[in-house]
Amino acid sequence: MNEWRPFGIRLRIHLLFWIVIGMSILLGKFWEIITLFVIVLIHEMGHIAVARELGWTVTEVELLPFGGVATMEEAYAVDPLDEIVVALAGPFLNVIMIAVSLVCWYADIWTDEWARFFLAGNVAVAGFNLLPIWPLDGGRIVQAVLCWCMPYRRAAIASLTLSAMLSALMLGVSVLSLQTNVAVVAVYLLAVNIQAFLRFPYQFIRFLMEKYARQPEEYGVRALTVPPESTAMEVSHLLRRGCSHLVYVQGSGLLAEERLLHALLFENKHDTAVGQLV
């Protein structure tokens, strides 16, 4: 069985994890890999708990040997700070488990061997997930920080470009050093980022739909000045996460974000000049 639904969340185990479990059985490391599974699961529970506290809807969690990927419906148009808090929740629980392992180690509750393994497992999961590669926690944090500085579309493309480059670098280094396990993970991350590039037009539309669905009072307001000949789609590329926009069209007047999004999503006015929408 590859899928469960605890607490209404679809939980899937990636094929890579099953391969690792199979290899662990052959090598006599079954309990070690089960411990790693529990560490990864607790890591993901940190993300889920904080996301639900913020009112997000978690639909799916996929577990991998080095962490997991949580799918959340409100993960595109939210405040970047909320994204950072959710991303850090998983590594934070790893830090808690590291502290627990140190206490049990020095109190002689655990053997040296087991305490070292549990400690190293948590350090590895937390450290790897903080790499600045999408969709790892570090990659999500990088994208959220970029969203503070620039429009969502530009920030997302920049973070995906960085992630693809780092994944390719990881793959090259792992191949040259004959690190097969790292190479497999690097191939996975590179494939995920290539897929994210290909799917980004759909992801951007989802971002616009989430902004339209949210009530304006949920956001702070940011002013945006554009020339009247700019198209509705061009102006949408300037929209940011975590705020609502009041667009000043030079020489024409003010255009509410809701009106702009309605023209894009429901009236098919992608190439219409915003001066005509005022």
Score class of each variant (00 low, 15 high):
L88H: 11
G90T: 01
G90N: 03
P91D: 10
P91E: 03
P91G: 01
F92Q: 00
N94L: 03
V95I: 15
I96E: 00
I96W: 06
I96K: 00
M97H: 03
I98D: 10
I98V: 14
V100N: 05
V100Q: 08
S101D: 10
W105K: 07
Y106H: 11
D108H: 08
I109N: 04
I109H: 09
W110Y: 14
T111Y: 07
T111M: 02
D112E: 12
E113D: 11
F117H: 10
L119Y: 13
N122P: 05
N122C: 06
A124S: 06
A124M: 14
A124F: 14
V125E: 04
V125I: 14
A126G: 14
A126W: 11
A126E: 08
F128D: 08
F128C: 03
L130R: 01
L131Y: 10
I133M: 12
I133L: 04
P135A: 09
G138D: 08
G138P: 07
G138A: 10
G139P: 07
R140H: 10
I141Q: 09
I141A: 02
I141P: 08
V142N: 00
V142F: 01
V142T: 11
Q143F: 00
A144I: 00
A144H: 03
L146P: 01
C147H: 07
C147V: 02
C149T: 09
P151A: 03
Y152T: 02
